[in-house]
Structure formats: structure tokens, C-alpha cells
Design a protein around this nucleic acid. Structure first.
Length: 609
RNA sequence: GCGCUCGUAGCUCAAUUGGAUAGAGUACCUGGCUUCGAACCAGGGGGUUGCAGGUUCGAGUCCUGCCGAGCGCACCA
């Protein structure tokens, strides 16, 4: 049962450990509250700093430095840190002892369980059921760049929360309903009259072209226009033939999507809007009941539409802005279906937390949606709903991401171009002073190009803060220098090469190797490795992937310094053997953190490149 | 017009959400491998954080006003 948990020492986040000690000290001086611990910005201030003294001093009317002094006197951390120093207005600077770092690193299980390396990190204390709404393409068209961020960011967040042991359900809320599907089904029926007889054999090579043709016919041909409208009605009514054709089209469109998901290595569960048709009726019934019970309440009709009125939202004219859940014509809209998804996720999936990974432009919609769901009782106060918004992907030159003709650039084409260009980068001959492998087989080169190209796109996306827009630039993404996937993958491959060179199965030999930290670059690397737990906590709390990319980049740099000929240390030929094995174990730990960190970003490492 | 987001080194971006002298990368300059992968490392120059006030021990971050960009503002999703 829980053998492993008892047997394996847990690697607790350093920040959390220090936090607890400081909390004890604050309690001892009668000043419970925020411990205000943060990593130090400059190495000369130590590793962590506690900024609680200033706030406490203000509250108690004392001098900050005096308060800092009394905190330090109560602080029991000599097993972890050097003597704390008080600096500036009342900062308490903490510097970790090398011996403590070494001991903690040795707590990381030396032998990684194959493909399930947790590096000794514990699971979250309380495990939740979390639904993540991501990707969400419209099946009427081909996926384009606009879907990249939601897919990649959503997948990363899902991976991090899964790693913490949460039950994560990734839902792909695909658009498979609405008037345009009438048009598409009618068009499909005309060009492939026999599609209903053999729906499985349907192949649409280019969805974008298909849509454009259907639209052109719709605009030019009044007879077809009528037919399209009748088709929508038939679809909604549940006409078996039309349903069959519609299903065939959706399946074919989903097949296109899943080619991309497979390439990106993203798993998710498709859940079409149509799935919620019945639930939307149910949602409306619930709202109508609220309307009857409380006629002047938040749920009421306005201009013929059923609405939910919420505080704090106004229209262009300054009037209260309602959330319309049933249009004047009796139809539903996306507010209705979004409320239905919440009902489904809360009542069927038992979610305690729902995360929507959708662009920033939808911010107001989600604010209203969450407020409405709470207001009408679809989501209780215990259900956390969050919108993870993000900025746009811009085209290299100027602004919108379009072809010269104003058309959409397919995501598929973008991914393939990245892989092609990665291949060209890899094919560059090694420079005179490089030890890069020259004997890679063609098939290896293909898979390396795939990993590098797709990793480059993902990493570039995830390494930007969510709020900001970014410019899609393959040149920068595929650069081997700087905070890019190629650099990170190279760093990993280089370390793995060291391990290979050091011995046939270094992992096995190093299981019990003691770690001794002496050299500044060794200590710095050890600290970086141990910060991983802090970083994961921050990423899962704030849902900000770029915190993880920044950390991994710093880790890679710390390793490069450690391994540098000038300022670093010898590893493979280090003596005595105890030093050599200690350093090899540091290499191994670095590689494992890089591998796990990149994996949580959705990027798989390669052993050579 | 109202609301939201943003404005940081020549360029691309950070800044652990109020902490110390605002950091990386890139580009430019300088130095470093006769055995560990130099696709690397070290050093240098480069800033009035759009502008002006305010809040406090402390502001890129918070509040106000202005300038500029983007997005959203009743039945499309």
C-alpha cells in the first residue's frame, strides 16, 4: 500500500521548510502572520530572504531591525542555514549550508523508476478533481495558430496538476453545432451524395477549402441558402440522415485535429457542444424556476430574451449588461452552453475546480459566466473556476496572423515548417571544436528534428508570460542560443553523453554515492536543483508555465558553469573516486530535473542531438 | 464613451505579485578549449521602467491624471 511513501524520504520544497521555521519564530514573538519569504535576488544576500519584520514593526510600532533581531533569536534553523544576517531596513538573509544541501539531495531516490521519475517529490495533500478546458477548435474549419496557445498551455497546466496527483480531466470543447454546420452538411451532401451510405470512408483533404467552397455557394446560390437553413432545422430536429452526414463530417474534422494532437503529444477528451443540447434545456428550466420564485430577481426577461443580471457589468450606453441565456427567438447561445458545461462538470464529473484556457479577449465573458454560475447556484461556493487567459500570437512582420490573401495559416503547416527547419539546423556540420555526434542514422535525425521543432514551438510559447502577445519567429525559436528548446535539449543531451562516457550504467553505480559540495559551482548547481520543488509549487499555484521555463534555463546555465573548463570542475576524470561519483550524481540529478521539467512542459528529451 | 490588458536595454522578453543596486537572451566588443559535448563559459558597454503626480520604511508592480497600442462592450461563438 503505502510502502513507498514510508520508505522513500520525501523531498520537501526548501521555501516551504523555511517558511515553517519562520512561522514558528513569528509565533514565538507573538506576531503570527505572513512569513514573507522569497528567494534572494542577489547571491550576496544569501539564498532566501524573510521580509516579515518590516510589516510587523509597523503594526507593533517598533523598529524594523529590532523586530528582525527578535525573529532571528527565535529562529531554529542552524541545521539548514548559516547564521542569519539582518540587512537594510530589516531583511533577514538566509544562506543554506552546503552540508544540508548535500543531505537533501541524497534524499532524492537515486534509482529512478522507469518513466515515472518523481525525484522524490510528494503529492499534493488534498487531491482534487480538476477539469481543464483547452484547445477547443471549431470543427467547421482547420485548426490555426489561434488554437496553439490554448492547447500547449492547457496541456502544460494539466501535466503539472497531474504530477501533483490531482485527477485532471482535459476537455476539448469542440464547436460542432450552429448554423454553419447546416451549410457544411448541405454542401457535403451535394458533392458526395453517397456519404450517408458509407460515412466512415469520408475523406476531406482540406477542410479550409471545403469551408470556403460551401460559403461561396451559400453566398451565391439562393436555392442552396434555403437548403442550408432547412438542413440546420433538420439537424436540430434530429433527422437521422442529416445527423449521420453531420456526424461523418465531425469525425473527419476531428481526425484532422487529432493528427495535430498526436504530433504535439497532447491527450484530451473530445466533448462537442452538441453533447450539451439536452443539458441546455435543463439549465433553462432551472433558470425559469428561479425566475418564477423570484420575479424581480437576477433571472428575468428583457426585450424578449431570458437573462441573468449581474452586478458590475454595463453596456456601451451604461445600462446593466445582462448575460443572455435564451435569445428572443428562443435559441440558445454560448452562455447557455457554457453554463451547461459547468452543470456537467460539477454534477457528472464531480469537479471541484474548473480551469478555462482561453484567450484574453474572452475575459469579460468568463467573469460573467463564473458570477452567473455562482449566482444561480449551478456552481456552489466550493467550486473554483478560473480563466487562464493569454495574449495573441502575432505574425513575424506586423500584426495579424494571416496569409497574404488574408486567409488563415494552418497550424499543421506551421508545425511542419518548424520540423523542417529543425532538420536543417541539425544537419549543419559540427564546428571544428564541437564533439557532436556525426554518425546519427537518418531515422534518428528525423525523430530529433521532430522533437526539436515541436519542442521549439511549445517552449517559445510557454516561455512567454501569459498576458503578453508574442511574435511567432521560427528563427528565434530554433536558435541554439538563449532561452530556447534547442538549447535546453542540447544541455540535456550533453549531460547524458557525460553519463554514457563515465560508465556503462552510471545510475546503478551511483545509487549510494555520497554527495559532497565544495566548489562554488557545485554548491550553486545543488541549490538550483533543489529549487525545483519551489518552482513546481509556484507554477501549480499561479498557473504560469513561464516560471518553469525560466527555472529550467537557469538550471541549464548553472550546469554549464559547473561543467565549464575554466570556472567549473572536472567530472569524469576527477579524483578521488568519491569526488568523481559525487559529481556524476550531480550530473544525473540535473539531467533528471531537466527531463522531468521539460516533460511537464510537454517536451520530450532526446539522448543525442 | 465605458471597461479590461499592456507600454521595461537597439531588438526579443523576465522580474517569484510591494522588497535591496530593474535582470536574461540577442546584437556589438574583449578574453577563454594541445582529454570530460566550446551548440559552452567569463568580462564589458547599453535604462529617467511611456509622461506627471500621489500612497510608504521601500513602487516596474498600488492610486489619480494624461499619451500611445490592443481587446471587449444585448440575443455570433
Amino acid at each position: 500500500m503505502c510502502f513507498l511513501f514510508v520508505e522513500c524520504p520525501r523531498v520537501i520544497a526548501l521555501r516551504e521548510l523555511l517558511s515553517n521555521r519562520i512561522a514558528d519564530a513569528l509565533r514565538a514573538i507573538g506576531a503570527e502572520g505572513d512569513v514573507q519569504i522569497a528567494p534572494a535576488q542577489d547571491e550576496k544576500f544569501g539564498d532566501y530572504q524573510c521580509n516579515a519584520a518590516m510589516a510587523i514593526a509597523k503594526k507593533q510600532g517598533k523598529k524594523p531591525r529590532d523586530v528582525a533581531q527578535s525573529i532571528v533569536e527565535q529562529l531554529r534553523i542552524d541545521d539548514m542555514c548559516e547564521l542569519p544576517e539582518i540587512a537594510g531596513p530589516g531583511f533577514i538573509n538566509l544562506r543554506l549550508k552546503p552540508g544540508f544541501l548535500a543531505k537533501t539531495l541524497m534524499d532524492v531516490p537515486a534509482q529512478a523508476v522507469e518513466d515515472n521519475d518523481r525525484l522524490g517529490l510528494p503529492l499534493a495533500v488534498t487531491q482534487e478533481t480538476i477539469v481543464i478546458d483547452l484547445s477547443s477548435p471549431n470543427l467547421a474549419k482547420e485548426m490555426h495558430v489561434g488554437h496553439l496557445r490554448s492547447t500547449v498551455i492547457g496541456d502544460c497546466i494539466a501535466r503539472v496538476l497531474e504530477f501533483e496527483g490531482h485527477n485532471v480531466i482535459r476537455e476539448n470543447h469542440v464547436g460542432d453545432w450552429g448554423t454553419q454546420f447546416g451549410m457544411l452538411v448541405a454542401h457535403l451532401r451535394r458533392i458526395k451524395p453517397d456519404v450517408a451510405d458509407n460515412p466512415a470512408s469520408l475523406v476531406i483533404k482540406d477542410l479550409e477549402t471545403f469551408y470556403i467552397e460551401a460559403k461561396a455557394r451559400f453566398d451565391a446560390d439562393d436555392e442552396f441558402k434555403t437548403e442550408a437553413r432547412e438542413t440546420v432545422v433538420a439537424l436540430q430536429r434530429g433527422d437521422p440522415l442529416i445527423r449521420k452526414i453531420w456526424q461523418a463530417f465531425c469525425n473527419e474534422s476531428l481526425r484532422h485535429c487529432h493528427e495535430i494532437y498526436r504530433q504535439l503529444n497532447v491527450r484530451l477528451v473530445d466533448r462537442g457542444e452538441s453533447f450539451y443540447n439536452d443539458l441546455m434545456d435543463d439549465v433553462i428550466r432551472r433558470l425559469e424556476r428561479l425566475q418564477r420564485e423570484n420575479p424581480g430577481g437576477a433571472v428575468r426577461e428583457s426585450e424578449g430574451a431570458l437573462c441573468i443580471f449581474l452586478d458590475g457589468f454595463t453596456t456601451r450606453e451604461g445600462q446593466p449588461l445582462p448575460m443572455i441565456v435564451r435569445k428572443t427567438d428562443g435559441g440558445y447561445n454560448y452562455a447557455t452552453s457554457d453554463l451547461a458545461t459547468i452543470v456537467d462538470r460539477v454534477e457528472r464529473l464531480h469537479a471541484n475546480r474548473i480551469i478555462y484556457v482561453v484567450g484574453m479577449s474572452q475575459k469579460q465573458h468568463f467573469e460573467m459566466l463564473f458570477a452567473a454560475a455562482h449566482k444561480v447556484g449551478i456552481a456552489g461556493a466550493n467550486i473554483a473556476m478560473e480563466h487562464v487567459g493569454f495574449g495573441n500570437v502575432l505574425a513575424p512582420g506586423g500584426r495579424p496572423f494571416k496569409t497574404r490573401e488574408g486567409g488563415t495559416i494552418k497550424l499543421k503547416d506551421l508545425l511542419n515548417e518548424a520540423v523542417d527547419r529543425a532538420r536543417r539546423v541539425i544537419d549543419q556540420p559540427p564546428t571544428d571544436d564541437s564533439k557532436r555526434p556525426t554518425d546519427l542514422a537518418l531515422s534518428e535525425k528525423d525523430s530529433i528534428a521532430e522533437a526539436v521543432g515541436l519542442g521549439a514551438i511549445k517552449y517559445f510559447d510557454l516561455s512567454h508570460s501569459l498576458m503578453s502577445d508574442y511574435t511567432f519567429d521560427l528563427e528565434i525559436m530554433l536558435s541554439l542560443e538563449g532561452n530556447t528548446a534547442p538549447y535546453m535539449l542540447y544541455a540535456y543531451a550533453r549531460i547524458r553523453s557525460i553519463a554514457r562516457k563515465a560508465g556503462a550504467s552510471p545510475d546503478a553505480r551511483l545509487t549510494e554515492a555520497a554527495i559532497a559540495l565544495e566548489h562554488p559551482t557545485e554548491i550553486a548547481l545543488a541549490k538550483k536543483i533543489l529549487q525545483f520543488a519551489d518552482v513546481l509549487q509556484t507554477v501549480s499555484r499561479d498557473l504560469r508555465p513561464n516560471v518553469l521555463t525560466d527555472y529550467l534555463f537557469e538550471l541549464a546555465k548553472a550546469f554549464s558553469r559547473f561543467y565549464d573548463k575554466k570556472i567549473g570542475v572536472r567530472v569524469i576524470d576527477a579524483t578521488p573516486e568519491s569526488i568523481r561519483s559525487s559529481r556524476l550524481r550531480l550530473c544525473d540529478l540535473t539531467a533528471r530535473v531537466l527531463k522531468l521539467g521539460l516533460h511537464l512542459l510537454g517536451i520530450e528529451t532526446i539522448e543525442q542531438m
